[in-house]
Design a protein around this nucleic acid. Structure first.
Length: 505
RNA sequence: GCCUCUUUAGCUCAGUUGGUUAGAGCGUCGGACUGUUAAUCCGCAGGUCCUUGGUUCGAGCCCAAGAAGGGGCGCCA
């Protein structure tokens, strides 16, 4: 035992003890991941490594990756000591287990390398058929093989960052006394009217039960009523906020819209905090703090992956004509976002800026900005964010006609306390509001907008019993990932994208 | 859903005014070399030119319809 522990101490200087399982302490040779090994000083320690072959050069050098890091780890084999049948099976994509000694590398690029004693092929990968090569592939091609794209540097970096962002969001809210609320995925009403819904049913579609009147008999359906996948957890979050004070949801959201853009998915993840006693300003502060916290977190914890995506983006920019290139690199953009306050302007101010803008005067906008009250088009939002202010912009106090029924009416009787956060290159990343907490105002607004008041008794009950001012917002998780990774298509920042005509994998 | 562009080898792409046997780089395979860094050098193989129909003596190229993908717009997060 003493010997084993001594050996462990020698071989794992600089290794965080958390990385080693109890079983490994009793194993003679520790099994370590690439990330841990790369942090060690090479002094000939013996270890076991598993991973997938990224490249095999000169019958001698294996570039191995196990997803723990963007970096590959070099294994060196003396090909004369291994049977030719084994050497032949070391190909791009194959999975291997190796034991050997960690030595300083003779090569210029890497600090250390494993001189291999024994090598097992755990999984062959026929090089004639394996679609991934050690070269650049187009994102469109990789989207077609989304089950294999995790094995590329770009996608492994994206999904490590995606994890870190999710973790940072939970940490942010937890540190501030929020409770993580699981809002339902199946709901019985499209109460918010947020969009087209996916219907959930167990009825036999070949033999739909009918009532005497010929209507579909939902009494025979699983929930005895029509049901669908959630389009938002907000209303449920409000119910909880009026008791737990500070809650947030973080779950999947489904919209059956026929949206075909690089910013929309049919299944996406949304974060929806809801806070009792917050007003619109508190709401804007919370959203801005959260976004900055997340950016700071990944800058501190995902620097290598971000550096890789930054360099990748720089290469991509070089291919574009000067005019279309981004002004900032990814890292500069994140840093800028962190160090500057988001610009906060009212809808009314935005309309004035747009009316007097050069593109508007010169008729460059496809939709000219003329009168107060119309919704802003994405070309207008892009002008404000990318040309006029050149930083994230929070627009607030929108005309009530273009916003949802639950938003709090302002004293002017024409606007509501809504706010949208617009990000460069992505557009709307956050949409939120202070909620209408006054029962009469809420009811009259619901009538005007033809929302089913009877059906939503449960929502109105919060205003009937102990109502209070409160506010919240919805953050599109994938849109945030788009921003922090510098990717441009939302289908590339979710493992298995769902969009019209596609639910592969 | 609307507008627009694209579809040629496993991948990334070229292909002249419609003309004989459709090309390149990378990859694969075979060989040489063996401390490489997307190694290097030599060689071979690899094609439903997206699909269907049409025009023509002749179509990768022209016309029509459809499919898939990209970009823009709308809906929004």
């Amino acid at each position: 035992m003493v010997l084993v522990f001594e050996r462990l101490l020698v071989s794992n200087t600089k290794i965080n003890a958390k990385n080693i399982s109890l079983r490994q302490i009793f194993d003679a040779v520790p099994r370590l991941d690439v990330k841990s090994i790369l942090s060690m000083e090479p002094i000939g320690q013996e270890l076991i490594i598993h991973g997938w072959v990224r490249n095999f050069r000169s019958n001698r050098f294996i570039a191995l990756n196990d997803g723990s890091s963007i970096n590959n780890f070099q294994l060196v084999i003396d090909f004369e000591k291994f049977p030719e049948e084994v050497i032949k099976r070391i190909s791009v994509g194959s999975c291997i287990k190796a034991t050997g000694k960690l030595n300083p590398s003779l090569g210029a690029v890497q600090k250390s390398e494993l001189v291999v004693d024994t090598l097992d092929i755990l999984g062959d990968s026929d090089p004639a058929l394996y679609p991934l090569q050690p070269k650049k592939h187009s994102l469109e091609f990789l989207r077609d093989i989304a089950h294999l794209r995790f094995r590329t540097n770009t996608f492994s970096a994206i999904f490590r960052i995606r994890h870190a962002v999710a973790f940072a969001i939970h940490q942010f809210f937890n540190d501030r006394g929020f409770f993580y609320l699981h809002s339902p995925i199946i709901t019985a009403s499209d109460a918010e009217g947020a969009g087209e819904t996916f219907q959930v049913t167990t009825l036999n579609l070949d033999k739909i039960p009918r009532t005497e009147e010929g209507e579909i008999d939902y009494k025979k359906d699983f929930f005895s009523r029509p049901s669908n996948l959630t389009v938002s957890g907000q209303l449920e979050a409000e119910l909880a906020a009026l008791a737990l004070s500070k809650v947030y949801t973080f779950g999947p959201t489904f919209r059956a819209e026929n949206s075909n853009t690089p910013r929309h998915l049919a299944e996406f993840w949304m974060i929806e905090p809801e806070v009792a006693f917050n007003d619109l300003n508190d709401n804007m502060d919370l959203a801005e703090d959260m976004l900055k916290y997340v950016i700071q977190y990944i800058l501190s914890n995902c620097s290598e992956d971000l550096k890789f995506l930054n360099d990748r983006d720089q290469e991509e920019q070089k291919q574009k004509p000067q005019q279309e290139r981004n002004e900032f690199s990814l890292l500069e953009k994140l840093d800028f976002c962190l160090k500057n306050n988001f610009e906060r302007i009212s809808y009314t101010e935005a309309i004035e800026i747009l009316k007097n803008s050069n593109p508007n005067k010169k008729g460059k906008f496809q939709y000219p900005v003329e009168k107060w009250g119309t919704d802003l088009q994405s070309e207008h939002e892009r002008y404000l964010v990318e040309k006029h202010f050149k930083k994230p912009v929070i627009l607030y106090n929108y005309p009530k006609e273009i916003k949802a029924f639950y938003m709090r009416q302002n004293i002017d009787n024409t606007t509501v306390a809504a706010m949208d956060i617009l990000f460069p290159g992505i557009g709307e990343i956050v949409g939120g509001s202070q909620r209408e907490e006054r029962l009469e105002k809420l009811e009259s607004r619901m009538k005007e907008m033809h929302r089913p008041i009877q059906e939503m008794y449960w929502y109105l009950d919060t205003r009937r019993y102990g109502t209070c001012p409160h506010a919240g917002f919805g953050l599109g998780f994938e849109r945030l990932i788009l921003f922090v990774t510098g990717m441009s298509n939302i289908r590339d920042v979710i493992p298995f994208p769902r969009y019209p005509g596609n639910a592969e994998f």
